[in-house]
Write a protein that binds this DNA or RNA. Structure first.
Lengths: 258, 258
DNA sequence: GAACAAGGTTCCGGGAACTGGAACTGAATG
DNA sequence: CATTCAGTTCCAGTTCCCGGAACCTTGTTC
C-alpha cells in the first residue's frame, strides 16, 4: 500500500526468487497492477535500490544494497568482539568460523571466515538456513522458552537432509541436550558433507543472542577434534559472556525443562 | 520528497556515516523536519530496512539489506565466470583476488576472496575506494574516453596516500599506460602496505566492465612476481573476453590517445 | 505482412498517505 | 524544579501514489 512497503516487498521477493525480475513477473508475484509494478521498479532503479540489465531490460538488485547491507552488525560491540575472537580461532585451527543470528525459524549468517583447510565450507554473510537443522539454530532456540519454540514450529518444516530432526519432539530433545551441555553439533543436517559445532552468547544490555560456530568437512573431523573445537568456542563464549553480562549458555534455558 | 527518496537518503547516509543514527541526527543531516525523520525511520524499521537498538533506541541497518545485498552481481554471467576464474587463481597462487566495478570516481568491490598467505589483505564486497588511486579503478577508467574522465575529475580529489596521482594530468599519464599495456598496478596508493595488479573485461552485450585484481602485501611481492600475477590475470581476462565478446583490454582505449 | 501475444510504459482522475509545524512526553542534567 | 534535548503524536493541507485503460514495441505465427 505505501510506496515503501511495495519497494520492500520487491526486495524481499527478489532476495528469495532469483537475482532478476521483470515487471510482469513482479506484478504477478506480488498481486500488483502492471502499471504500479512498472512505476515502483523504475522508481527503485532511479534511487539505486535496483539496477536494470541493459540487455534484457530486467531489474536486478542495486549496488547500494550491497554497500549498505554489509554494515549490518557493525557497531554492535558483541558482534565485533565475537568476530575478533573467531578470527583468532580460525587462525589457530584453520577451520571456518562464523556468527549467526536467529530470525523466526531460520538462522542468518552475519559474519563468516573461510578456513584454510583444503575442503572449504563457505556460507557468506546473509545466508539463511533452517534453525532446527543447524547447530547454531538449536543453540539460539535453546535460549527461548518452550512455548515460544512450540509456537514457531506449529507446523513442522520438512527436514532439509535425512539427518535433521523430523518433529517438534525430536527437536525439543536436542534442545534439552543443548541446555544441559551448553553447546551443540550438527552433521549433514542442512548441507551435505558439512559438520559444525556451536555455542550461543547474548548481550544482556540488548538481549540479542548470537551463535558462534566452527564449520568443517564432516568426514575429516572426528569426534575428538569436534570436542576440542567446542571447548574453544565455549571458552571464547565464556569470556564474551562476562564482558557482556550474559548468563552462561548452559544455564540459559528458561523453559519448563530448562 | 517522495517516501522512497527519503528512505534511500537515510540508507545512503547510514552507509557512509557510521553504523547507527538517531532521529535528530538524521533530521539534521538530511535537512528534514524532526517529525518526518521520526516517521521515516520508524516506517523503515517496521519494514525491516532498519533495526532499532533496544538499548540506545538508535537505528541501525536491518538484516534484510544484508540478505538482499549479497545477491548483487548474481546472475550476471560475466561476474560469475570471472569469480570462478579468480577462485582458481587464488587456489593456485595463494593471493587474495577480487572483482571491482566503477561507480563515478570510485570503485566498489563486488566479490573478494582472502589469500592464504600470512599477511592477509581483506576488502569485503561493498567496500568503496578511490578509482584514481587503485589499479582496478584505473583499469576501468581507461575504458572511458578522455572527455568522460576529465568530466568526472573536474575537481581533482585529495590523494588518499602520497603515492597516489595528484592531478588529472598524472592520472591521464597512467591511464595512457594502462591502455598501452593492458594491465595496471598500484602500490600503497589507497591502503598502506598493500599492492595490487589488475585487468579489466567487459560484457559486450551489456557494456558493463569489471576489474579483476590480485591484492597482496607490497613488501612481500617483488616486481617479478607482480608481472607473473598480471600475466595470469591477462590470461584469465582474455578467455573471458572471447566468451563475452569484449575487445581485448589493451586496445580498448577509445580516447584521443587510445 | 497482418494479426496476435507478451512485456513494458504513459496517462489521468480520485483518494490514500505523506508532510511538517506545533504541542506533548519523558529522560537526563544541574 | 526548571531546563534542555531526543523523540513521538496530532492534524489539516496537499502531494504523490494508485490502478484501470490505452498505447508502444518487439517478437511470433500462419
Amino acid at each position: 500500500m505505501s510506496a515503501l512497503s511495495n519497494a520492500v516487498s520487491v526486495l524481499r521477493w527478489l532476495g528469495r526468487n532469483g537475482p532478476e525480475a521483470g515487471v510482469t513477473q513482479v506484478a504477478a508475484a506480488l498481486g500488483l497492477p502492471k502499471s504500479t509494478a512498472s512505476r515502483v521498479l523504475k522508481d527503485m532503479a532511479v534511487h539505486g535500490l535496483l539496477e536494470r540489465d541493459p540487455a534484457t531490460a530486467r531489474y536486478r538488485v542495486g549496488m547500494l544494497l550491497l554497500e549498505v547491507g554489509r554494515h549490518y552488525g557493525a557497531g554492535q560491540p558483541l558482534v565485533e568482539a565475537a568476530d575478533a575472537a573467531l578470527a583468532e580461532l580460525t587462525r589457530r585451527t584453520g577451520h571456518a568460523t562464523g556468527i549467526s543470528v536467529l530470525d523466526g525459524i531460520n538462522v542468518v549468517v552475519l559474519r563468516s571466515r573461510a578456513g584454510t583447510r583444503p575442503l572449504r565450507v563457505v556460507t557468506p554473510p546473509g545466508n539463511r538456513g533452517p534453525a532446527w537443522a543447524t547447530s547454531t539454530g538449536r543453540c539460539l532456540l535453546a535460549r527461548l522458552d518452550d512455548g515460544e519454540i512450540a509456537a514457531r514450529f506449529r507446523v513442522f518444516p520438512r527436514p532439509p537432509l535425512p539427518a535433521a530432526p523430523r518433529s517438534l519432539a525430536a527437536l525439543m530433545e536436542r534442545i534439552r541436550q543443548v541446555r544441559a551441555v551448553g553447546w551443540e553439533e550438527a552433521e549433514e543436517e542442512s548441507m551435505p558433507g558439512v559438520g559444525a559445532v556451536s555455542v550461543a552468547v547474548a548481550d544482556s544490555r540488548t538481549d540479542e543472542a548470537l551463535a558462534l560456530y566452527f564449520a568443517f568437512s564432516a568426514l575429516h573431523v572426528d569426534k575428538r577434534e569436534r570436542r576440542a573445537l567446542a571447548a574453544l568456542l565455549r571458552e571464547a563464549a565464556a569470556r564474551l559472556a562476562v564482558r557482556f553480562g550474559d548468563v552462561p549458555a548452559a544455564f540459559a534455558g528458561r523453559g519448563a525443562y530448562g
